[in-house]
């Protein structure tokens, strides 16, 4: 019986702790693929919870916040071309009265880089807003660091 008295509060703390966490419906993951000694592509993937979405990097102002990725300049690499994204869902939104482009479930952003010394660590920051039909969350900026070997 004593064990129950000990375990009950413990169980309550564990399970209530789960709900005290700040809601963040997006998980970010990273990868890199080397094309040759001079070129590589970095992949930045957002895995988005059911019923939530993030917005295109090309979302026009006046509506929801676009997703933006900022790469930190380095002597190890240079960006080659623009950041790429797949074709987003685009709809006319009645509330914003404009075209809104977004991604559901998952999206992979790609950036080609030119390697100066055959390898590099690509670092940067992701700013984004994630919304469902009722609410939005603007989490802290996400720092990334992607080794390219």
């Amino acid at each position: 019986m004593r064990k129950i008295y000990f375990l009950l509060p413990l169980l309550m703390i564990i399970s209530s702790g789960l709900y005290a966490q700040i809601e963040n419906p997006v998980k970010w993951s990273y990868a890199a693929k080397k094309m040759n000694q001079q070129e590589a592509v970095v992949f930045i993937k957002a895995t988005i919870d059911e019923n939530w979405h993030i917005y295109s990097i090309n979302q026009k102002p006046g509506g929801p916040l676009k997703t933006s990725l900022v790469f930190i300049p380095s002597t190890g690499y240079q960006l080659e071309g623009k950041l790429r994204e797949p074709t987003p869902h685009t709809v006319h939104d009645e509330v914003f009265d404009m075209e809104v482009s977004y991604f559901e479930k998952s999206v992979v952003f790609q950036q080609k880089v030119k390697l100066n010394t055959g390898q590099a660590v690509v670092k940067g920051k992701i700013k984004y807003m994630v919304c469902n039909e009722e609410k939005c969350v603007t989490p802290d900026d996400v720092d990334f660091s992607i080794p390219v070997k």
Binding site: G63, P64, L65, D93, V95, F96, M129, C131, N132, E133, E134, K135, C136
Partner: peptide
């Protein structure tokens, strides 16, 4: 709220 949040504006 904020002007970028659909649910807020709605």
């Amino acid at each position: 709220g904020g002007i970028n949040c659909r649910g807020c504006v709605a």
